[in-house]
Design a protein around this nucleic acid. Sequence first.
DNA 1: TGACAGTATCGAATATTTCGATGATACGAT
DNA 2: ATCGTATCATCGAAATATTCGATACTGTCA
Lengths: 304, 304
Amino acid sequence: MAGDLNAMVDIVRNINSIQVFMVCHELGNVTRAAQELNVSQSSVSYHIKKLEDDLSVTLFRRTASGLQPTEQGSLLAQHVGRGLAAIRTGLDRIAQGPGAVRVALLPMFASRWLSSRLGQLFEAHPEMNLSIQNHNNSFVRMSNPERFADLGIQWGRGNWDSFHVTRLWPETLALVCSPDYLQAHPIRQPTDLLRCTLLHVDDTRMWEEWLAASGLALDGAQPQMMLEDRHFQLSSTINGLGVSLFASWLVQDELENGTLVNPFGSVFATSFAYHVVVPKGVEPSVSIQRFHRWICDQSSGWAH
Amino acid sequence: MAGDLNAMVDIVRNINSIQVFMVCHELGNVTRAAQELNVSQSSVSYHIKKLEDDLSVTLFRRTASGLQPTEQGSLLAQHVGRGLAAIRTGLDRIAQGPGAVRVALLPMFASRWLSSRLGQLFEAHPEMNLSIQNHNNSFVRMSNPERFADLGIQWGRGNWDSFHVTRLWPETLALVCSPDYLQAHPIRQPTDLLRCTLLHVDDTRMWEEWLAASGLALDGAQPQMMLEDRHFQLSSTINGLGVSLFASWLVQDELENGTLVNPFGSVFATSFAYHVVVPKGVEPSVSIQRFHRWICDQSSGWAH
DNA sequence: TGACAGTATCGAATATTTCGATGATACGAT
DNA sequence: ATCGTATCATCGAAATATTCGATACTGTCA
């Protein structure tokens, strides 16, 4: 690399002051930064002054109501923010111990698919140190997903640009409700749904897709209910709160033992599916790669 | 951001020890790291121990010949390396003062195109604080281009994935040599070139493209000479060392006053051109955007 | 103007880092 | 086997950097 700077063997001076600066930039206020950091106001002031002196750059304009970042200050904060985030990510990852794999899981997927296969996983990879983090389908929308987990299972359409995405299998959806609910709200054709309470989590995109396939659309009058997570949605459906769309394999047991019924008796193709997602820009460790491979192998060999 | 960690208001502890760790990881040796850092060996040892204790992670395996990073150690170094690089980039950028624009320029482009337009630039943007960095067409191949400059001019085909690329104008190439050289090596048709010394900088891709257009190819027997930079190539060509390919507008003066001649009397279309390149992932400041816009405007209005 | 909410500065107290010397351990050559 | 050498670890003392609490200073608002 002609003309390149050898970056690794010179240290960033004042990096602690830079961190104090970051907190000030965040809060716009020396005093509050000091409270946040559990140190005295004079200490924070000292760091800011030191940093400005050392860099010969004015980072803040002092006002009567606190600190106003200069253009330079904001520029620095931007870069340092990214930098510290990367460092924190590294610390988070090694804190887990070697062979660690942190998986962000959907509770429903964890209990109905993964849990019965975990024994097999540990047989095949005894060194693997798995740590399960629950999330409510929000993994791909976190601002720092790599701090939360190394990879995740996410339900959706798979169009998440900042992740490496692997679709697990094509899904079909079953429309289900409790037998009692069906008796009270006869469902013979799609339009009957417009009089039912549509249960969902997160958003109504699945319902919209399903209705659109029958030439229908959601309107404001449609009764609906957003629930906390899929487990809660399942029990609510069983308890007769309304109708739900579920991946058909998920509710197979309930349909067989009669706690849920499928009014149409058939399932529907959908553009939604479970995906393995890995945050881009973070090189996965060997263990993470192994887990990724394992879950993909499992899923491709699974006839659901 | 449900479940997200608020990243900005907690500081990274031990970050100085982490930097010492980085140097050790780089050099694989406490003693040499200490020399590099101009501190005692015991001080470096102290930091490594402190870091390992605080993180409860073994970062190095100690051997008789130095330090062997553990898997965890390498993982940490990877992330921290990226993080510190971002921080250094930030510091580099604000060190220039507000309105700073660091341009990585090709010397030939600087002297024959930009220099005559600089007055105009400062008239239009008096606050702009321009700093010119020379490079030999290596900007896009630097490992940390954003530390070197905010944007650059690069000659080539424009296929540089980690940069935002704007092609300035379509180029034509003139094949030129000195009148004396032409007399000694008559050039009437493309095959005559195979007996000439082909001068170039960097690599032979331009010659390959030019020869391919005539159904010819470079072979090992072909005399050629790689020169340091284009200025040197120009004077070498004038001094009769061989034939060169230049963007035709660059050698217009020399062709007019007879210090160079164009044996074929015509110019050739090429896939090469000058480009403005901006490293991706770094938000350009207002001044940088202004300079970018200015140079693009200039170039589109330029009939060369 | 005075109250207030903010930052800056000072000397003293405290915490952290560094030093130099020494110890401990592994490796390779004799 | 033993010595010489290179390595990292540990120790107490010294040097340096940070923090504290008190106080000074500054601009805003009523």
